[in-house]
Nucleic acid binder design. Sequence first.
DNA 1: CGAGGTCTTGAAGACGATCAACAAACGTGG
DNA 2: CCACGTTTGTTGATCGTCTTCAAGACCTCG
Lengths: 251, 251
Amino acid sequence: MIEALIAKLNLWGTLSAEETAALASSFGPPRSYEPRGLLVEQGALAHECTLLMDGFTGRVTALRDGTQQITALHVAGDFVDLHSFLLRIMDHSVIALSRCTVASVPHERVDDLTDRFPHLTRLLWRSTLVDAAIHRQRIVGMGRLSAIQHLAHLICELALRLESVGRAQARGFDLPISQAVLADTLGLTSVHLNRTLQELRGRNLIRWTGQRLEILDWNALVELGDFDPTYLQLGPTPALRASVPDSRLSA
Amino acid sequence: MIEALIAKLNLWGTLSAEETAALASSFGPPRSYEPRGLLVEQGALAHECTLLMDGFTGRVTALRDGTQQITALHVAGDFVDLHSFLLRIMDHSVIALSRCTVASVPHERVDDLTDRFPHLTRLLWRSTLVDAAIHRQRIVGMGRLSAIQHLAHLICELALRLESVGRAQARGFDLPISQAVLADTLGLTSVHLNRTLQELRGRNLIRWTGQRLEILDWNALVELGDFDPTYLQLGPTPALRASVPDSRLSA
DNA sequence: CGAGGTCTTGAAGACGATCAACAAACGTGG
DNA sequence: CCACGTTTGTTGATCGTCTTCAAGACCTCG
Protein backbone atom coordinates (compact mmCIF):
# COMPACT_ATOMS: atom_id res chain seq x y z
CA MET A 1 0.00 0.00 0.00
CA ILE A 2 2.67 2.48 0.90
CA GLU A 3 5.04 1.21 -1.77
CA ALA A 4 3.97 4.11 -3.95
CA LEU A 5 5.41 6.49 -1.37
CA ILE A 6 8.56 4.45 -0.83
CA ALA A 7 9.13 4.21 -4.57
CA LYS A 8 8.63 7.96 -4.92
CA LEU A 9 11.12 8.79 -2.20
CA ASN A 10 13.59 6.30 -3.59
CA LEU A 11 13.45 8.06 -6.91
CA TRP A 12 15.32 10.95 -5.40
CA GLY A 13 17.74 9.37 -2.95
CA THR A 14 17.75 5.79 -1.81
CA LEU A 15 16.38 5.02 1.60
CA SER A 16 18.31 2.66 3.84
CA ALA A 17 16.61 -0.50 5.02
CA GLU A 18 16.38 1.05 8.46
CA GLU A 19 14.75 4.22 7.17
CA THR A 20 12.32 2.27 5.04
CA ALA A 21 11.35 0.07 7.95
CA ALA A 22 10.94 2.99 10.33
CA LEU A 23 8.77 4.85 7.86
CA ALA A 24 6.66 1.88 6.84
CA SER A 25 5.98 0.87 10.42
CA SER A 26 4.74 4.35 11.30
CA PHE A 27 1.41 4.11 9.53
CA GLY A 28 -1.83 3.19 11.19
CA PRO A 29 -4.42 0.88 9.61
CA PRO A 30 -5.82 1.84 6.20
CA ARG A 31 -9.25 3.44 6.03
CA SER A 32 -11.54 4.47 3.22
CA TYR A 33 -13.61 7.46 2.20
CA GLU A 34 -16.48 7.95 -0.17
CA PRO A 35 -16.49 10.89 -2.61
CA ARG A 36 -17.09 14.18 -0.75
CA GLY A 37 -15.80 12.65 2.45
CA LEU A 38 -13.92 15.07 4.68
CA LEU A 39 -10.41 13.96 5.63
CA VAL A 40 -9.23 17.13 7.32
CA GLU A 41 -11.12 20.30 8.08
CA GLN A 42 -10.03 23.84 7.36
CA GLY A 43 -9.10 25.59 10.62
CA ALA A 44 -8.74 22.34 12.55
CA LEU A 45 -5.71 21.44 14.62
CA ALA A 46 -4.08 18.46 12.93
CA HIS A 47 -2.43 15.71 14.93
CA GLU A 48 -1.46 13.30 12.18
CA CYS A 49 -0.32 13.23 8.56
CA THR A 50 -2.28 11.23 6.03
CA LEU A 51 -0.98 9.34 3.04
CA LEU A 52 -3.21 8.73 0.05
CA MET A 53 -2.83 5.15 -1.11
CA ASP A 54 -5.54 4.93 -3.70
CA GLY A 55 -8.03 7.28 -5.35
CA PHE A 56 -8.06 11.06 -5.49
CA THR A 57 -8.26 13.76 -2.84
CA GLY A 58 -8.03 17.52 -3.03
CA ARG A 59 -7.19 20.58 -0.97
CA VAL A 60 -10.26 22.78 -0.83
CA THR A 61 -10.59 26.26 0.47
CA ALA A 62 -14.10 27.53 0.97
CA LEU A 63 -14.92 31.16 0.27
CA ARG A 64 -17.36 33.38 2.13
CA ASP A 65 -19.66 33.57 -0.88
CA GLY A 66 -20.16 29.81 -0.96
CA THR A 67 -17.82 29.07 -3.87
CA GLN A 68 -14.73 26.98 -3.39
CA GLN A 69 -11.31 26.60 -4.93
CA ILE A 70 -9.38 23.36 -5.09
CA THR A 71 -5.73 24.27 -4.71
CA ALA A 72 -4.27 20.82 -5.22
CA LEU A 73 -5.14 17.34 -6.43
CA HIS A 74 -3.52 14.33 -4.83
CA VAL A 75 -2.83 10.93 -6.35
CA ALA A 76 -1.73 7.65 -4.79
CA GLY A 77 1.57 8.03 -2.96
CA ASP A 78 1.00 11.68 -2.04
CA PHE A 79 0.79 12.93 1.50
CA VAL A 80 -2.36 15.01 1.65
CA ASP A 81 -1.24 17.11 4.62
CA LEU A 82 2.39 16.49 5.45
CA HIS A 83 2.67 20.22 6.07
CA SER A 84 0.25 19.92 8.97
CA PHE A 85 3.12 18.39 10.92
CA LEU A 86 4.84 21.78 11.05
CA LEU A 87 1.96 24.15 10.45
CA ARG A 88 -0.54 22.43 12.72
CA ILE A 89 -3.59 24.54 12.02
CA MET A 90 -4.96 23.73 8.59
CA ASP A 91 -5.38 26.58 6.11
CA HIS A 92 -7.68 24.43 3.96
CA SER A 93 -9.77 21.26 4.04
CA VAL A 94 -8.88 17.98 2.41
CA ILE A 95 -11.73 16.03 0.84
CA ALA A 96 -12.10 12.81 -1.08
CA LEU A 97 -12.76 13.42 -4.76
CA SER A 98 -13.33 9.76 -5.53
CA ARG A 99 -13.58 6.64 -3.43
CA CYS A 100 -10.17 6.41 -1.81
CA THR A 101 -8.11 4.73 0.86
CA VAL A 102 -5.55 6.32 3.17
CA ALA A 103 -3.33 5.67 6.19
CA SER A 104 -1.97 8.08 8.78
CA VAL A 105 1.11 8.77 10.87
CA PRO A 106 0.83 10.60 14.21
CA HIS A 107 2.75 13.87 14.34
CA GLU A 108 4.85 12.63 17.26
CA ARG A 109 6.01 9.83 15.04
CA VAL A 110 7.05 12.24 12.30
CA ASP A 111 8.85 14.29 14.93
CA ASP A 112 10.69 11.17 15.95
CA LEU A 113 11.56 10.20 12.38
CA THR A 114 12.91 13.67 11.63
CA ASP A 115 15.00 13.58 14.78
CA ARG A 116 16.60 10.30 13.87
CA PHE A 117 16.88 10.34 10.08
CA PRO A 118 18.18 13.52 8.45
CA HIS A 119 18.26 11.91 5.03
CA LEU A 120 14.68 10.70 5.25
CA THR A 121 13.73 14.14 6.53
CA ARG A 122 15.18 15.77 3.46
CA LEU A 123 13.25 13.41 1.20
CA LEU A 124 9.98 14.16 2.98
CA TRP A 125 10.78 17.85 2.86
CA ARG A 126 11.46 17.49 -0.80
CA SER A 127 8.06 16.00 -1.44
CA THR A 128 6.46 19.14 0.02
CA LEU A 129 8.69 21.24 -2.24
CA VAL A 130 7.34 19.42 -5.27
CA ASP A 131 3.85 20.20 -4.00
CA ALA A 132 4.84 23.86 -3.98
CA ALA A 133 6.23 23.61 -7.50
CA ILE A 134 2.91 22.17 -8.61
CA HIS A 135 1.13 25.06 -6.93
CA ARG A 136 3.26 27.44 -8.95
CA GLN A 137 2.27 25.78 -12.19
CA ARG A 138 -1.35 26.21 -11.23
CA ILE A 139 -0.67 29.92 -10.67
CA VAL A 140 0.95 30.23 -14.07
CA GLY A 141 -1.94 28.39 -15.65
CA MET A 142 -4.57 30.56 -14.04
CA GLY A 143 -2.70 33.77 -14.61
CA ARG A 144 -1.39 33.40 -18.12
CA LEU A 145 -3.02 30.47 -19.91
CA SER A 146 -6.46 30.21 -21.45
CA ALA A 147 -8.93 27.71 -20.05
CA ILE A 148 -8.15 25.09 -22.69
CA GLN A 149 -4.42 25.52 -22.30
CA HIS A 150 -4.61 25.20 -18.55
CA LEU A 151 -6.79 22.12 -18.81
CA ALA A 152 -4.35 20.53 -21.25
CA HIS A 153 -1.54 21.31 -18.86
CA LEU A 154 -3.35 19.75 -15.94
CA ILE A 155 -4.08 16.59 -17.91
CA CYS A 156 -0.40 16.25 -18.84
CA GLU A 157 0.58 16.74 -15.23
CA LEU A 158 -1.87 14.15 -13.95
CA ALA A 159 -0.75 11.67 -16.59
CA LEU A 160 2.89 11.90 -15.50
CA ARG A 161 2.16 11.92 -11.80
CA LEU A 162 -0.07 8.88 -12.13
CA GLU A 163 2.38 7.12 -14.39
CA SER A 164 5.16 7.61 -11.85
CA VAL A 165 3.18 5.54 -9.38
CA GLY A 166 2.01 2.98 -11.88
CA ARG A 167 -1.50 4.36 -12.15
CA ALA A 168 -1.35 5.47 -15.79
CA GLN A 169 -0.30 4.04 -19.10
CA ALA A 170 0.64 5.79 -22.31
CA ARG A 171 -2.93 5.55 -23.56
CA GLY A 172 -4.56 7.13 -20.54
CA PHE A 173 -5.61 6.69 -16.94
CA ASP A 174 -8.62 6.34 -14.68
CA LEU A 175 -9.98 9.67 -13.53
CA PRO A 176 -13.12 8.97 -11.53
CA ILE A 177 -13.84 12.58 -10.57
CA SER A 178 -16.60 14.95 -11.63
CA GLN A 179 -16.30 17.86 -14.03
CA ALA A 180 -17.28 20.16 -11.18
CA VAL A 181 -14.14 19.13 -9.32
CA LEU A 182 -12.00 19.87 -12.33
CA ALA A 183 -13.71 23.23 -12.69
CA ASP A 184 -12.98 24.12 -9.06
CA THR A 185 -9.38 23.11 -9.62
CA LEU A 186 -8.91 25.32 -12.66
CA GLY A 187 -10.89 28.23 -11.25
CA LEU A 188 -13.64 27.92 -13.87
CA THR A 189 -17.37 27.36 -13.70
CA SER A 190 -18.51 23.84 -14.40
CA VAL A 191 -20.41 25.13 -17.41
CA HIS A 192 -17.33 26.57 -18.99
CA LEU A 193 -15.21 23.58 -18.08
CA ASN A 194 -17.73 21.40 -19.86
CA ARG A 195 -17.44 23.47 -23.02
CA THR A 196 -13.67 23.48 -22.80
CA LEU A 197 -13.70 19.72 -22.46
CA GLN A 198 -15.83 19.45 -25.56
CA GLU A 199 -13.37 21.58 -27.44
CA LEU A 200 -10.57 19.25 -26.38
CA ARG A 201 -12.63 16.26 -27.49
CA GLY A 202 -13.54 17.98 -30.72
CA ARG A 203 -9.88 18.47 -31.53
CA ASN A 204 -9.37 14.74 -30.92
CA LEU A 205 -6.87 15.28 -28.14
CA ILE A 206 -8.63 13.30 -25.44
CA ARG A 207 -11.62 11.11 -24.75
CA TRP A 208 -13.14 10.94 -21.28
CA THR A 209 -15.97 8.52 -20.76
CA GLY A 210 -17.00 8.12 -17.18
CA GLN A 211 -13.92 6.73 -15.50
CA ARG A 212 -11.31 6.47 -18.16
CA LEU A 213 -9.46 9.42 -19.62
CA GLU A 214 -7.83 8.46 -22.90
CA ILE A 215 -5.00 10.51 -24.29
CA LEU A 216 -5.33 10.58 -28.07
CA ASP A 217 -2.53 13.00 -28.84
CA TRP A 218 0.05 13.49 -26.14
CA ASN A 219 2.30 15.80 -28.11
CA ALA A 220 -0.52 18.11 -29.02
CA LEU A 221 -1.55 18.34 -25.37
CA VAL A 222 2.00 19.18 -24.34
CA GLU A 223 2.21 21.81 -27.04
CA LEU A 224 -1.17 23.31 -26.24
CA GLY A 225 -0.55 23.50 -22.49
CA ASP A 226 3.05 24.71 -22.83
CA PHE A 227 3.88 21.76 -20.60
CA ASP A 228 7.43 21.24 -19.33
CA PRO A 229 7.62 18.35 -16.84
CA THR A 230 10.80 19.57 -15.15
CA TYR A 231 8.94 20.86 -12.11
CA LEU A 232 7.59 17.41 -11.29
CA GLN A 233 11.11 16.20 -10.58
CA LEU A 234 10.42 12.75 -11.91
CA GLY A 235 14.02 12.23 -12.86
CA PRO A 236 14.98 10.99 -16.31
CA THR A 237 12.14 11.50 -18.77
CA PRO A 238 9.78 8.58 -18.40
CA ALA A 239 10.47 6.00 -21.06
CA LEU A 240 6.82 5.45 -21.72
CA ARG A 241 6.18 8.95 -22.92
CA ALA A 242 9.17 8.99 -25.17
CA SER A 243 7.77 5.98 -26.98
CA VAL A 244 4.38 7.50 -27.71
CA PRO A 245 4.15 8.15 -31.44
CA ASP A 246 3.90 11.81 -32.32
CA SER A 247 0.52 11.75 -33.95
CA ARG A 248 0.69 15.47 -34.59
CA LEU A 249 3.64 15.00 -36.88
CA SER A 250 2.05 12.08 -38.60
CA ALA A 251 -1.26 13.86 -39.00
CA MET B 1 21.24 41.74 8.26
CA ILE B 2 20.05 38.22 8.79
CA GLU B 3 18.23 39.09 12.01
CA ALA B 4 15.02 39.19 10.03
CA LEU B 5 15.44 35.50 9.27
CA ILE B 6 16.51 34.59 12.79
CA ALA B 7 13.57 36.49 14.22
CA LYS B 8 11.20 34.76 11.84
CA LEU B 9 12.47 31.29 12.72
CA ASN B 10 12.39 32.13 16.42
CA LEU B 11 8.74 33.01 16.09
CA TRP B 12 7.96 29.34 15.61
CA GLY B 13 10.40 27.53 17.87
CA THR B 14 13.39 29.03 19.60
CA LEU B 15 16.79 28.37 18.16
CA SER B 16 19.61 27.42 20.48
CA ALA B 17 22.68 29.64 20.61
CA GLU B 18 24.57 26.93 18.75
CA GLU B 19 21.98 26.69 16.00
CA THR B 20 21.81 30.46 15.63
CA ALA B 21 25.58 30.72 15.41
CA ALA B 22 25.86 27.89 12.90
CA LEU B 23 23.18 29.40 10.70
CA ALA B 24 24.44 32.97 10.92
CA SER B 25 28.01 31.97 10.10
CA SER B 26 26.91 30.12 6.96
CA PHE B 27 26.20 33.18 4.84
CA GLY B 28 28.59 34.68 2.39
CA PRO B 29 29.12 38.42 1.99
CA PRO B 30 26.10 40.56 1.12
CA ARG B 31 25.62 41.69 -2.45
CA SER B 32 23.17 43.98 -4.21
CA TYR B 33 20.97 43.95 -7.28
CA GLU B 34 19.29 46.63 -9.30
CA PRO B 35 15.66 46.26 -10.39
CA ARG B 36 15.32 43.59 -13.12
CA GLY B 37 18.54 41.98 -11.97
CA LEU B 38 18.61 38.20 -12.35
CA LEU B 39 19.40 36.30 -9.14
CA VAL B 40 18.71 32.78 -10.36
CA GLU B 41 17.81 31.57 -13.80
CA GLN B 42 15.00 29.22 -14.76
CA GLY B 43 16.44 25.84 -15.73
CA ALA B 44 19.79 26.50 -14.09
CA LEU B 45 21.44 24.13 -11.66
CA ALA B 46 21.54 25.91 -8.31
CA HIS B 47 24.43 25.46 -5.90
CA GLU B 48 23.48 27.88 -3.15
CA CYS B 49 20.43 29.27 -1.37
CA THR B 50 19.92 33.00 -1.24
CA LEU B 51 18.40 35.05 1.55
CA LEU B 52 16.77 38.37 0.81
CA MET B 53 17.84 40.94 3.37
CA ASP B 54 16.35 44.08 1.92
CA GLY B 55 14.09 45.03 -0.98
CA PHE B 56 11.81 42.86 -3.09
CA THR B 57 12.40 39.89 -5.35
CA GLY B 58 10.02 37.62 -7.22
CA ARG B 59 9.75 34.18 -8.73
CA VAL B 60 9.12 34.55 -12.43
CA THR B 61 8.20 31.95 -14.93
CA ALA B 62 8.46 32.93 -18.56
CA LEU B 63 5.96 31.63 -21.08
CA ARG B 64 6.57 30.70 -24.69
CA ASP B 65 4.45 33.59 -25.91
CA GLY B 66 6.64 36.16 -24.21
CA THR B 67 4.35 36.86 -21.26
CA GLN B 68 5.42 36.06 -17.74
CA GLN B 69 3.82 35.16 -14.45
CA ILE B 70 5.24 36.08 -11.07
CA THR B 71 4.39 33.20 -8.75
CA ALA B 72 5.73 34.70 -5.55
CA LEU B 73 6.92 37.94 -4.02
CA HIS B 74 9.67 37.93 -1.42
CA VAL B 75 10.31 40.39 1.36
CA ALA B 76 13.26 40.85 3.72
CA GLY B 77 13.93 37.70 5.71
CA ASP B 78 12.66 35.34 3.01
CA PHE B 79 14.80 32.74 1.32
CA VAL B 80 14.25 33.24 -2.38
CA ASP B 81 15.21 29.69 -3.35
CA LEU B 82 15.61 27.51 -0.29
CA HIS B 83 13.88 24.79 -2.29
CA SER B 84 16.80 24.73 -4.74
CA PHE B 85 18.73 22.90 -2.04
CA LEU B 86 16.60 19.81 -2.59
CA LEU B 87 15.23 20.41 -6.07
CA ARG B 88 18.47 21.62 -7.64
CA ILE B 89 17.22 22.50 -11.07
CA MET B 90 15.18 25.69 -10.94
CA ASP B 91 11.63 25.60 -12.27
CA HIS B 92 11.55 29.41 -12.41
CA SER B 93 13.80 32.46 -12.33
CA VAL B 94 14.25 34.82 -9.42
CA ILE B 95 14.61 38.49 -10.25
CA ALA B 96 15.01 41.70 -8.30
CA LEU B 97 11.84 43.77 -8.33
CA SER B 98 13.45 46.70 -6.57
CA ARG B 99 16.96 47.54 -5.51
CA CYS B 100 17.79 44.80 -3.03
CA THR B 101 20.54 43.13 -1.06
CA VAL B 102 21.03 39.43 -0.44
CA ALA B 103 23.44 36.84 0.98
CA SER B 104 23.87 33.18 0.13
CA VAL B 105 24.62 29.82 1.72
CA PRO B 106 26.25 27.03 -0.31
CA HIS B 107 24.15 23.90 -0.62
CA GLU B 108 26.82 21.79 1.07
CA ARG B 109 26.49 24.03 4.07
CA VAL B 110 22.73 23.53 4.20
CA ASP B 111 23.33 19.81 3.88
CA ASP B 112 25.64 20.01 6.84
CA LEU B 113 23.20 22.08 8.91
CA THR B 114 20.37 19.66 8.23
CA ASP B 115 22.57 16.74 9.21
CA ARG B 116 23.47 18.27 12.54
CA PHE B 117 20.38 20.20 13.61
CA PRO B 118 17.01 18.46 13.25
CA HIS B 119 15.20 21.28 15.01
CA LEU B 120 16.68 23.95 12.78
CA THR B 121 15.89 21.72 9.81
CA ARG B 122 12.24 21.63 10.77
CA LEU B 123 12.13 25.40 11.06
CA LEU B 124 13.69 25.87 7.63
CA TRP B 125 11.32 23.27 6.23
CA ARG B 126 8.48 25.13 7.84
CA SER B 127 9.42 28.34 6.09
CA THR B 128 9.04 26.58 2.74
CA LEU B 129 5.64 25.32 3.87
CA VAL B 130 4.51 28.86 4.51
CA ASP B 131 5.67 29.70 0.99
CA ALA B 132 3.40 26.94 -0.27
CA ALA B 133 0.49 28.25 1.81
CA ILE B 134 1.02 31.65 0.23
CA HIS B 135 0.99 30.01 -3.21
CA ARG B 136 -2.37 28.48 -2.34
CA GLN B 137 -3.82 31.86 -1.45
CA ARG B 138 -2.68 33.15 -4.82
CA ILE B 139 -4.49 30.25 -6.47
CA VAL B 140 -7.66 31.01 -4.56
CA GLY B 141 -7.36 34.67 -5.45
CA MET B 142 -6.88 33.99 -9.14
CA GLY B 143 -9.53 31.32 -9.31
CA ARG B 144 -12.33 32.72 -7.24
CA LEU B 145 -11.78 36.40 -6.50
CA SER B 146 -12.29 39.41 -8.74
CA ALA B 147 -9.30 41.55 -9.64
CA ILE B 148 -10.01 44.14 -6.97
CA GLN B 149 -10.57 41.50 -4.31
CA HIS B 150 -7.37 39.71 -5.15
CA LEU B 151 -5.44 42.97 -5.13
CA ALA B 152 -6.87 43.86 -1.73
CA HIS B 153 -5.90 40.42 -0.47
CA LEU B 154 -2.35 40.79 -1.72
CA ILE B 155 -1.97 44.18 -0.09
CA CYS B 156 -3.15 42.77 3.24
CA GLU B 157 -0.71 39.90 2.91
CA LEU B 158 2.22 42.15 2.11
CA ALA B 159 1.36 44.45 5.00
CA LEU B 160 1.47 41.62 7.53
CA ARG B 161 4.54 39.96 6.07
CA LEU B 162 6.43 43.24 6.06
CA GLU B 163 5.23 44.13 9.51
CA SER B 164 6.48 40.82 10.87
CA VAL B 165 10.00 41.82 9.88
CA GLY B 166 9.68 45.43 10.93
CA ARG B 167 9.27 46.78 7.41
CA ALA B 168 5.71 48.06 7.77
CA GLN B 169 3.72 50.16 10.17
CA ALA B 170 -0.02 50.36 10.71
CA ARG B 171 -0.27 53.27 8.29
CA GLY B 172 1.50 51.57 5.41
CA PHE B 173 4.80 50.43 3.96
CA ASP B 174 7.33 51.12 1.22
CA LEU B 175 6.53 49.28 -1.99
CA PRO B 176 9.07 50.40 -4.59
CA ILE B 177 7.87 48.13 -7.38
CA SER B 178 6.13 48.88 -10.66
CA GLN B 179 2.48 48.33 -11.46
CA ALA B 180 3.56 45.91 -14.20
CA VAL B 181 5.13 43.68 -11.54
CA LEU B 182 1.92 43.70 -9.54
CA ALA B 183 -0.02 42.87 -12.69
CA ASP B 184 2.23 39.91 -13.45
CA THR B 185 1.77 38.74 -9.87
CA LEU B 186 -2.01 38.85 -10.02
CA GLY B 187 -2.24 37.46 -13.53
CA LEU B 188 -3.68 40.68 -14.96
CA THR B 189 -2.61 43.06 -17.67
CA SER B 190 -0.93 46.22 -16.46
CA VAL B 191 -3.76 48.20 -18.02
CA HIS B 192 -6.37 46.46 -15.95
CA LEU B 193 -4.27 46.54 -12.83
CA ASN B 194 -3.98 50.27 -13.23
CA ARG B 195 -7.74 50.63 -13.41
CA THR B 196 -8.23 48.34 -10.45
CA LEU B 197 -5.76 50.40 -8.48
CA GLN B 198 -7.72 53.52 -9.30
CA GLU B 199 -10.87 51.88 -8.08
CA LEU B 200 -9.15 51.06 -4.79
CA ARG B 201 -7.95 54.64 -4.52
CA GLY B 202 -11.36 55.96 -5.45
CA ARG B 203 -12.91 54.01 -2.61
CA ASN B 204 -10.35 55.57 -0.27
CA LEU B 205 -8.89 52.27 0.79
CA ILE B 206 -5.29 52.98 -0.16
CA ARG B 207 -2.96 55.62 -1.48
CA TRP B 208 0.17 54.68 -3.42
CA THR B 209 2.47 57.46 -4.45
CA GLY B 210 5.74 56.27 -5.89
CA GLN B 211 7.35 54.41 -3.05
CA ARG B 212 4.92 54.52 -0.19
CA LEU B 213 1.74 52.53 -0.01
CA GLU B 214 -0.60 53.98 2.58
CA ILE B 215 -3.38 51.89 4.03
CA LEU B 216 -6.36 54.14 4.59
CA ASP B 217 -8.86 51.53 5.67
CA TRP B 218 -7.43 48.23 6.83
CA ASN B 219 -10.73 46.66 7.80
CA ALA B 220 -12.31 47.41 4.48
CA LEU B 221 -9.36 45.82 2.68
CA VAL B 222 -9.64 42.70 4.80
CA GLU B 223 -13.35 42.50 4.15
CA LEU B 224 -13.00 43.13 0.43
CA GLY B 225 -10.25 40.56 -0.05
CA ASP B 226 -11.81 37.95 2.24
CA PHE B 227 -8.47 38.00 4.00
CA ASP B 228 -7.77 35.54 6.82
CA PRO B 229 -4.15 35.77 8.00
CA THR B 230 -4.05 32.28 9.48
CA TYR B 231 -2.05 30.89 6.57
CA LEU B 232 0.84 33.26 7.21
CA GLN B 233 1.50 31.55 10.54
CA LEU B 234 2.55 34.76 12.22
CA GLY B 235 1.50 33.49 15.60
CA PRO B 236 -0.66 35.62 17.87
CA THR B 237 -2.46 38.32 15.93
CA PRO B 238 -0.08 41.24 15.57
CA ALA B 239 -0.82 43.87 18.18
CA LEU B 240 -0.42 46.69 15.69
CA ARG B 241 -3.28 45.59 13.52
CA ALA B 242 -5.61 45.13 16.43
CA SER B 243 -5.07 48.75 17.37
CA VAL B 244 -5.96 50.17 13.98
CA PRO B 245 -9.27 52.00 14.32
CA ASP B 246 -12.07 50.51 12.29
CA SER B 247 -12.73 53.40 10.00
CA ARG B 248 -15.45 51.48 8.19
CA LEU B 249 -17.50 51.34 11.34
CA SER B 250 -16.88 54.98 12.10
CA ALA B 251 -17.63 56.06 8.56
C1' DC C 1 17.64 67.76 -23.76
C1' DG C 2 16.56 63.31 -25.20
C1' DA C 3 15.43 58.46 -24.12
C1' DG C 4 13.39 54.84 -21.88
C1' DG C 5 10.51 53.25 -18.57
C1' DT C 6 6.13 53.98 -16.14
C1' DC C 7 1.52 55.47 -15.68
C1' DT C 8 -2.92 56.71 -17.67
C1' DT C 9 -6.84 56.90 -20.82
C1' DG C 10 -10.12 55.37 -24.65
C1' DA C 11 -12.56 52.19 -27.66
C1' DA C 12 -13.53 47.64 -29.16
C1' DG C 13 -13.61 42.82 -28.60
C1' DA C 14 -13.16 38.14 -26.42
C1' DC C 15 -13.33 34.85 -22.99
C1' DG C 16 -15.50 33.12 -19.41
C1' DA C 17 -19.58 33.94 -16.01
C1' DT C 18 -24.32 33.74 -15.09
C1' DC C 19 -28.97 32.16 -15.33
C1' DA C 20 -32.10 28.75 -16.68
C1' DA C 21 -33.60 24.56 -18.23
C1' DC C 22 -33.28 19.85 -19.48
C1' DA C 23 -31.11 15.23 -20.33
C1' DA C 24 -28.51 11.44 -18.72
C1' DA C 25 -26.51 8.52 -15.30
C1' DC C 26 -26.46 6.57 -10.94
C1' DG C 27 -27.63 4.46 -6.61
C1' DT C 28 -31.28 3.15 -3.59
C1' DG C 29 -35.31 1.25 -2.05
C1' DG C 30 -39.77 -0.32 -3.04
C1' DC D 1 -36.70 -4.77 -12.02
C1' DC D 2 -38.68 -0.55 -12.26
C1' DA D 3 -39.52 4.02 -9.92
C1' DC D 4 -37.48 7.46 -7.84
C1' DG D 5 -34.53 11.27 -6.27
C1' DT D 6 -30.07 13.02 -6.65
C1' DT D 7 -25.96 14.06 -8.78
C1' DT D 8 -23.71 14.90 -13.09
C1' DG D 9 -23.41 16.42 -17.74
C1' DT D 10 -25.09 19.33 -21.64
C1' DT D 11 -27.07 23.28 -24.18
C1' DG D 12 -28.66 28.15 -25.12
C1' DA D 13 -28.84 33.13 -24.43
C1' DT D 14 -27.15 37.11 -22.32
C1' DC D 15 -23.97 39.73 -19.58
C1' DG D 16 -19.66 41.52 -17.58
C1' DT D 17 -14.88 41.52 -16.53
C1' DC D 18 -10.75 41.70 -18.29
C1' DT D 19 -7.91 41.90 -22.69
C1' DT D 20 -6.16 44.04 -26.62
C1' DC D 21 -4.53 47.73 -29.26
C1' DA D 22 -3.26 52.33 -29.50
C1' DA D 23 -1.84 56.65 -28.10
C1' DG D 24 -0.37 60.21 -25.17
C1' DA D 25 1.37 62.23 -20.53
C1' DC D 26 4.65 61.92 -17.10
C1' DC D 27 8.97 61.10 -14.90
C1' DT D 28 13.57 60.04 -13.98
C1' DC D 29 18.17 59.92 -15.18
C1' DG D 30 21.86 59.82 -18.23
